[in-house]
């Protein structure tokens, strides 16, 4: 190898580049990725979002608040629906309107219609409707992690 030829890469420089820098960068990058992944939890110890309630006939006509999962269960005759009480603005718990209609949020004053649509205030999305189903032993199951399209009732 010609020492004075500037276009030639010296063996030692090549080795330094290939093994030294590349492995250093690789080690750094791999630790960064692993570190970032490390702080994303794999298991969550959060309360179950599925709630097993009573038999349908045990719920009174009108609204029942299921505080465990922050959901309104609303019965009208033999149809049941569940509306999330978590405000879509910043996550406060909404209240049922004083006259039993609509919902309103204490935090920044969002108002929602009976179907959960936003009627005023800063909330960007309607309140979610949630999946209501029956368990084998005939009790209601409300799954707060399963939004369904609005106007989906469980009819017994």
């Amino acid at each position: 190898m010609n020492d004075s030829d500037p276009t030639q890469v010296k063996r030692r420089d090549f080795m330094q580049l290939a093994f030294g820098w590349c492995s250093a960068l690789f080690a750094l990058g791999a630790s960064a990725v692993a570190g970032a992944r490390y702080i994303v939890p794999n298991v969550l110890y959060e309360p179950d979002q599925r709630f097993k309630g009573q038999k349908p006939e045990d719920y009174p006509e009108g609204t029942t608040f299921l505080s465990d999962i922050r959901v309104f269960l609303i019965r009208k005759g033999n149809s049941f629906r569940a509306v999330s009480a978590i405000c879509t603005h910043l996550g406060c718990t909404v209240n049922r309107g004083a006259d039993g209609h609509g919902f309103h949020c204490p935090c920044h004053g969002s108002q929602f219609s009976d179907n959960g649509e936003v009627t005023s205030g800063p909330a960007p999305r309607p309140l979610s409707w949630l999946l209501v189903s029956l368990s084998r032993d005939g009790r209601l199951i409300i799954d707060a992690s399963q939004p369904v399209e609005a106007k989906k009732y469980l009819v017994i």
Binding site: H89, T93, C107, H108, G109
Partner: peptide, 24 residues
Amino acid sequence: VHPPNPAKAPWYFLGLQELVAYSA
């Protein structure tokens, strides 16, 4: 389950929360 009414962020974020009350 029950937020205090009103629920407020720390004071130095309340300017932002005021804006958030118009648009998040």
